[in-house]
C-alpha cells in the first residue's frame, strides 16, 4: 500500500521560512490529520507533495515516486486543495470529464464519482453556481476520479452543512478503511478526533508532534486540548 513520505522539506519565500525541515509519513489504513496554526506550512506542504511548489530542499514521495514523475498522477494521488480552482462556466460533470481524459480514464468514472459525492443531479449545471459545499463535493469527486491509493484534502469540511460534514466524515473513514493513505488538513479538532487515527501537528514549517490520536487523547484528554498545548506560542509565519 502506498504511503506519503515527506522528508526534510525546506522552502523560503524571500526572508520568510515557509517550510523548515517538514518530515512525516502518512501510512495507509487510517485518516491522518494535519493540523497547525495558519501559516504553519500545511498548504505549502500539500502543494509541494503534488508538485505545485518545488521545495528548496527535501523530498515528497508518493508510493515511492515523486508526483511529477507519475504518468497519470491522479490515479496515484487524488487531491482537493482549492475547491474554487475550476472554470465557472463549465459544468461539474464536464470538469470531471476533462480531468478523466487527462488521466486516460473512461467517461463513466465521472458519473461514478458524481454519484458517490451526491452530485448526480447538479453535475450538469455550471460549476460557477455551486455553493462552497457543492464545490467541496466536486473537489472530492475529482480527487476520487482515478481511484487513487493516496488522498490529500485541504480543509474538506469548509462550507459543508451538518449533513455534509457527517457524510464527509463517513466517506473519509471508509476510504481509509479500504487501505488508502488519507491526509486531511483541518482546523476542526472535534471532527478529526472522531475520524483520524493519527495526527501530525505542524508549526513554523516543521513537525511539532506526530502521534496517534488515542495517545494524544490519553495524554491531554482531548485532541483540541492537545493541539492548544502543543502549539502554544506558535504563531503564523507572517
Amino acid at each position: 500500500m502506498a504511503t506519503i513520505e515527506v522528508n526534510g522539506l525546506r522552502k523560503r519565500y524571500g526572508a520568510a521560512v515557509a517550510l523548515d525541515g517538514m518530515t512525516f509519513t502518512v501510512r495507509p489504513g487510517h485518516v491522518t490529520g494535519f493540523v497547525g496554526p495558519n501559516g504553519a506550512g500545511k498548504s505549502t506542504t500539500l502543494r509541494t507533495i503534488i508538485g505545485l511548489d518545488r521545495p528548496d530542499a527535501g523530498t515528497a514521495i508518493i508510493g515511492g515516486r515523486r508526483y511529477a514523475e507519475l504518468a497519470h498522477p491522479m490515479r496515484h494521488c487524488g487531491a482537493l486543495l482549492d475547491p474554487h480552482a475550476l472554470h465557472p462556466a463549465r459544468s461539474g460533470r464536464n470538469h470531471l470529464l476533462w480531468l478523466a481524459a487527462s488521466q486516460g480514464l473512461p467517461a463513466r468514472r465521472a458519473d461514478e464519482v458524481l454519484g458517490l459525492t451526491g452530485l448526480a443531479d447538479a453535475g450538469r449545471r455550471a460549476a460557477g453556481g455551486y455553493s462552497l459545499g457543492m464545490r467541496q463535493r466536486l473537489g472530492v469527486a475529482a480527487a476520487l476520479l482515478g481511484d487513487p491509493p493516496v488522498l490529500l484534502l485541504d480543509e474538506p469540511f469548509n462550507g459543508l452543512d451538518p449533513a455534509g460534514i457527517v457524510w464527509m466524515r463517513g466517506l473519509l473513514r471508509d476510504l481509509a478503511a479500504e487501505g488508502r493513505s488519507v491526509l486531511v488538513s483541518s482546523h476542526l479538532m472535534s471532527e478529526l478526533q472522531d475520524m483520524a487515527g493519527h495526527v501530525v501537528v505542524a508549526g513554523h514549517g516543521r513537525v511539532i508532534a506526530d502521534a496517534g490520536v488515542d495517545d494524544l487523547i490519553g495524554e491531554y484528554a482531548s485532541l483540541e486540548a492537545a493541539y492548544l498545548e502543543l502549539t502554544a506560542g506558535v504563531g503564523g509565519i507572517r
Binding site: R47, I50, G51, P73, M74, L81, A85, L86, H87, A142
Partner: peptide
C-alpha cells in the same frame, strides 16, 4: 487567461504536471 483565474491552473497542473 481562464487558466489563471480562480486558480484553475493548479487543477490543471495537478492533473498534468508537465
Amino acid at each position: 487567461s481562464a487558466e489563471f483565474r480562480h486558480g484553475m491552473i493548479r487543477t490543471t497542473l495537478a492533473a498534468i504536471p508537465r
